[in-house]
Design a protein around this nucleic acid. Structure first.
Lengths: 96, 96
DNA sequence: AATACATATTGACAAATTTCAATATATAGT
DNA sequence: ACTATATATTGAAATTTGTCAATATGTATT
């Protein structure tokens, strides 16, 4: 294939791994640095880094570098976009 | 792991494959039988059947058997549930 | 500049997912 | 009962994803 849905799927992939969901849940209470996330989540540092990359690339999470640290936070417009996509794909059309 | 997020992830997995997104999009205009979906989607019959199983088990789609045919449709409460989960996981908490 | 620390990248392996061919099941029509 | 049709299941191959160990990069501190 390789169509519009490929792009949509990429967004939803952000949400279909339990480690990523856990990270998102941690970010709901505000920006967190990678080292804090690492303490809470049960994976090694390179694995977390990999998941953060997926979250950032899907637009759901923002990264802010500050000295040695990387601070992550929910990207509100990215989250909005995900919600809109979900609406788009699940809403029943009027003229059924 | 194996926690609440495992269950959430299962719901989002329904949306993270482009074939499944295409099927969902087809179902937006109303119930369709598997044979109709098969014509539109670029995978073989066993593969479609596999995807439909995932969609049904995630609660996003309902199946209705009628004679030889299986008719699939969007399950509105399942879709609602998915939207609520997405809210739940992306909403920034007040007391940030 | 040397060291320590935080994070990212690479490469390899393991596990999960997608796919198909072959086959099974179930129903309808003859 | 036989045949045709629609869908499901099984088993295997191919692909993708998640994981870790090792290493690289980049920043701060001494």
């Amino acid at each position: 294939m390789q169509n519009e849905y490929t792009e949509y799927a990429k967004v939803f992939k952000a949400f279909c791994d339990e480690t990523r969901l856990m990270v998102l849940s941690l970010l709901q209470s505000g920006e967190k640095c990678a080292c804090v996330l690492l303490e809470k989540v049960n994976v090694g540092q390179p694995t977390l880094s990999h998941h953060m990359k997926i979250l950032v690339e899907s637009g759901i999470v923002s990264a802010r570098k500050e000295g040695k640290w990387t601070h992550y936070s929910l990207n509100e417009s990215g989250c909005e976009n995900a919600k809109e996509l979900l609406e788009l794909i699940t809403n029943v059309s009027e003229d059924n």
